[in-house]
């Protein structure tokens, strides 16, 4: 579904990604792990269009998207959340969701009711409340998003991305900063969503319980290169992986 061929990327003076070859199959829950600074976030940037790969190509469903901007890829079915959750801090949680749903209306060229109306329509409001309940934010719908806890912001951002009904969702550390209970819940939520709606997941994560609880495929990245990729249990046993990454932590 999503493929990287020989992708390279450098910041001025630092080579961050080298010759990355990666295939994400439709329906996978694909986790990328690696030590801090390995280049996971940079890889996400290049795959999602926030930055453009300097070498190699990125294809999505057979189409070359290497040079497409983020908003164009989103229109094709990409979704993305950030390592440090990004929401609209000066709006209420509900308004955050309304903005996301209205963006979906624009993508699909749907009308949101009479053009002269300033308030969002009733149907859209109902959907917004449902979607907030789905990520367990129904109780804080009228709070300003800027005052939410870190974990709540993460869940809101996940909800905003899901509102666009993406085909492939890139999650950069979806459970960072959450309590162990919240983590388990997010794992359940993501599994449920992925089975219910035909969704492909690509995520990075430092928490091994989340990784092995969720991933159907595992890729290890270190110093900008892929060390191993495959079935999670098998990758876990590879000596080179134990040495470079897992060995340090477990």
């Amino acid at each position: 579904m999503l493929e990287a061929h020989g992708v390279g990327f450098s910041y001025p003076g630092i080579r961050v990604l080298q010759d990355i070859n990666l295939t994400v199959e439709a329906g996978e829950r694909h986790a990328i792990i690696g030590p801090n600074g390995a280049g996971k976030t940079t890889l996400f940037k290049v795959l999602s269009g926030e930055d453009i790969a300097q070498e190699g190509t990125v294809t999505y469903q057979g189409q070359d998207v290497t040079r497409k901007g983020a908003w164009e890829r989103v229109k094709l079915g990409f979704g993305r959340t950030f390592q440090v959750a990004r929401v609209f801090p000066e709006m209420t949680v509900l308004d955050n969701m309304i903005v996301a749903l209205e963006c979906r209306q624009r993508i699909r060229h749907e009308s949101g009711g009479p053009w002269w109306k300033v308030a969002a329509g009733r149907l859209l409001l109902e959907e917004a409340r449902e979607r907030l309940a789905e990520v367990r934010l129904g109780g804080v719908a009228d709070d300003e998003a800027g005052i939410l806890s870190h974990g709540d912001k993460k869940r809101l951002e996940l909800g905003l991305s899901l509102a666009l009904e993406p085909r492939i969702l890139l999650l950069d550390e979806p459970t960072a900063g959450m309590s162990p209970d919240d983590r388990k819940e997010v794992v359940q939520l993501l599994k449920g969503l992925q089975e219910k709606r035909d969704l492909t997941l690509l995520l990075t994560e430092h928490d091994m319980d989340v990784v092995f609880g969720l991933a159907t495929r595992l890729t290890v990245l270190s110093l900008g290169q892929i060390l191993a990729s495959g079935d999670p249990e098998q990758v876990r046993k590879e000596p080179v992986v134990r040495e470079v990454y897992l060995g340090q932590r477990h």
Partner: peptide
């Protein structure tokens, strides 16, 4: 508030 977030909502 956050132009990048809006790009990732599919807006030019």
């Amino acid at each position: 508030q956050d132009p990048d977030r809006v790009r990732f909502l599919g807006v030019n």
